[in-house]
Simulated scan of single mutants.
Amino acid sequence: MTAASALPGRPSGHAPQGRVTERAVSVLAPNASAMTLDGTNTWIVAEPDAGEAVVIDPGPLDEGHLRAVADAVTREERSVGLILLTHGHPDHAEGAVRFAELTGAPVRALDPALRLGDEGLSGGQVVTTGGLELRVVATPGHTSDSLSFHLPADGALLTGDTVLGRGTTIVAHPDGRLGAYLDSLRRLRSLTEGEDGAGTVLPGHGPVLADAQGAIDFYLAHRASRLAQVETAVERGARTPAEVVATVYADVDRALWPAAEYSVRAQLEYLRERGLLPGDGQEG
């Protein structure tokens, strides 16, 4: 399963290519689909005068894309000092080993199985490669190993699949859990507050969002609305995830229903754990 679900609800737009902020450059992977939107945004992040860059999510195992990322770093007279992964889905992480071979850089991730090198990665850490300050934020929910990165100098959040530039992400049940996801959204929301709060979302898929706070508020409201719709569907007799999807996502392209079912399973679990499902509330 890949990362995102282009379900309705957010404005359309084009994925970024090239320089987006003073420190962040995007290289778009050629893996566009209903699940990956325009493709995976691979991010190159570096201090303006630094000789080393950090690459976030090399993307799929596509030789042309990986070499394009390496070339983009070289053009700025830098080397790749570190590779970071937001999570382990193949559209973000499959190319990491090959990219490490091309660049000689270690790979850091929350999941030990994805690492190449001695160091792991977890929320609360600060990456300082090339003088960069990149704060690691634990954002489980989409997957259990999901991380985001706060780039305070640019007022930006690199969110992987936790917040997308278009559509809404799936909660990849059973690995992903809705309660954890809602907590992660609130954690990111807190980073947008105050005069120095992050204002921009640099997502793993889709266009850059210039209103980080508004985007996260939308996600929280969307999840609350979907939960209410799922609860109503169960009250009216839907018992399996497929039945709930057919009711709640009736206006969505059926090609996306299998992806929506992952989120519905997570929503049913969330409601059941809190005693909010009427009757037996069985998934089937």
Results as ranks from 00 to 15, higher is better:
Gly120Trp: 12
Pro30His: 07
Arg254Ala: 15
Glu47Met: 14
Arg115Lys: 10
Asp71Asn: 11
Gly194Ala: 07
Thr21His: 02
Glu231Val: 00
Leu114Arg: 13
Ala138Trp: 01
His65Ala: 01
Ala238Cys: 15
Asp251Tyr: 10
Arg10Ala: 07
Val245Pro: 05
Ala29Thr: 09
Leu110Trp: 10
Pro174Val: 02
Ala138Ile: 01
Gly141Phe: 05
Ala198Gly: 09
Thr169Tyr: 04
Ser33Glu: 12
Thr128Tyr: 11
Gln229Cys: 03
Ser146Ala: 15
Val55Cys: 08
Gly141Asp: 13
Gly81Glu: 05
Val69Glu: 08
Ala238Trp: 02
His92Ile: 01
Leu66Tyr: 05
Glu231Asp: 14
Leu164Ala: 10
Leu110Gln: 14
Glu243Pro: 07
Val97Lys: 12
Thr192Val: 06
Met1Asn: 06
Ser225Phe: 08
Thr40Asp: 06
His222Ile: 00
Glu76Met: 08
Val136Ala: 11
Leu202His: 09
Ala266Cys: 02
Gly179Arg: 09
His205Gln: 14
Arg67Asp: 12
Glu119Trp: 00
Glu101Cys: 01
Arg166Ile: 11
Ala228Thr: 13
Glu77Val: 02
Val244Glu: 06
Gly13Pro: 08
Val163Gln: 07
Glu235Gly: 03
Ile56Gln: 03
Ala29Cys: 07
Glu22Cys: 01
Thr240Phe: 05
Gly123Lys: 14
Asp161Pro: 05
Ala259Pro: 00
Val25Leu: 14
Gly281Asp: 10
Asp38Thr: 00
Gly155Pro: 09
Asp154Val: 06
Leu185Ser: 09
Ala259Lys: 06
His142Arg: 00
Gly59Trp: 10
Ala113Cys: 08
Val69Phe: 10
Pro241Leu: 01
His14Met: 04
Val73Gln: 08
Arg75Cys: 03
Ala260Gly: 13
Leu276Asp: 04
Leu202Val: 04
Ala215Ile: 01
Ala212Tyr: 08
Thr42His: 03
Asp62Met: 07
Thr86Phe: 05
Pro11Lys: 07
Ile56Pro: 10
Thr162Ser: 15
Thr74Cys: 00
Glu22Gly: 11
Asp38Gly: 02
Gly59Ala: 07
Leu188His: 07
Gln17Met: 04
Asn41His: 07
Gly123His: 10
Gly237Gln: 04
His14Arg: 13
Glu22Ser: 11
Thr168Cys: 03
Pro258Gly: 09
Gly279His: 11
Leu147Ile: 07
Gly284Ser: 14
